[in-house]
């Protein structure tokens, strides 16, 4: 399967994502410069990587969402293609309206760079099917504006439609205020769109795909996407 990794000016986790897909997962990956108006043919999943696109000027992700490539990403997502936004990529997806919510400065006003625990809330999605609901993943975060915010009404809808995919938690899976690194509403670390094909998360699974780097817990997310794609291809073959 093929991943397309979008590169904006200021992206800095593009190579990490490339490494995770090519070396750790063993699948194909191609970079796509933000000025491109089309995605590579045969793209199964688009990754919007972490970084500081356009220097995070104005608001994180606010300018990147108007990049030419984003029109192609929106079309791809509307057609059901899988899109994974990591950190700055999550912020861009929110700005683009592909995911609900917005980001505020971390509650502490500090940039936080450390490993946290997140709990998988659902296992029946393209991004978590290789994991088990309730599993705790050890994954690094690195952000200054990761304080996820939605209005109370939207939060209720997220719960109703099962769109909350990952929540910050303790090592044992308990979702506590103390385990919330940035002040995100309801300890939300990652969400899904209602259709289930677009996912954004603040933690960096691509930085947790090598034992040498401290954790391989991020690999489960990439494996899940691969499962989802092969399942889709299998359906396409028989139908």
């Amino acid at each position: 399967m093929k991943f397309a990794i979008v590169v904006f000016p200021g992206s800095n986790c593009d190579w990490d994502a490339y490494w995770a897909v090519r070396s750790a997962l063993g699948e194909d990956a191609e970079f796509v410069w933000h000025q491109e108006e089309k995605l590579p043919s045969g793209t199964d999943c688009v990754i919007l990587p972490g970084g500081f696109s356009y220097g995070d000027y104005l608001r994180s992700g606010a300018i990147a969402r108007f990049s030419p490539v984003m029109r192609a990403v929106v079309r791809f997502a509307r057609a059901g293609g899988f899109v994974l936004g990591i950190c700055n990529g999550f912020q861009i997806l929110c700005e683009a309206g592909l995911l609900p919510g917005a980001f505020l400065r971390n509650r502490s006003l500090r940039f936080i760079c450390r490993t946290v625990f997140i709990r998988v809330e659902r296992e029946d999605t393209p991004f978590t099917n290789a994991l088990t609901a309730g599993t705790v993943l050890r994954i690094p975060i690195a952000h200054g504006e990761g304080n996820y915010y939605v209005e109370p009404q939207t939060l209720r809808q997220l719960h109703e439609h099962g769109q909350i995919l990952f929540r910050y938690c303790e090592a044992d899976g308990a979702v506590t205020e103390a385990a919330n690194p940035n002040g995100s509403v309801d300890n939300i670390a990652g969400v899904l769109n209602r259709e289930g094909n677009v996912c954004g998360l603040m933690p960096h699974p691509e930085r947790a795909c090598e034992a040498l780097l401290g954790s391989v817990d991020g690999l489960g997310i990439f494996r899940s996407i691969r499962h989802a794609c092969s399942a889709r291809h299998a359906v396409a073959l028989v139908s």
């Binding site: 300018i63 929110c94 919510g101 915010y149």
Partner: peptide
């Protein structure tokens, strides 16, 4: 369209 994010 750009300068403000109506969510926040």
């Amino acid at each position: 369209r750009l300068l403000a994010n109506p969510v926040i």
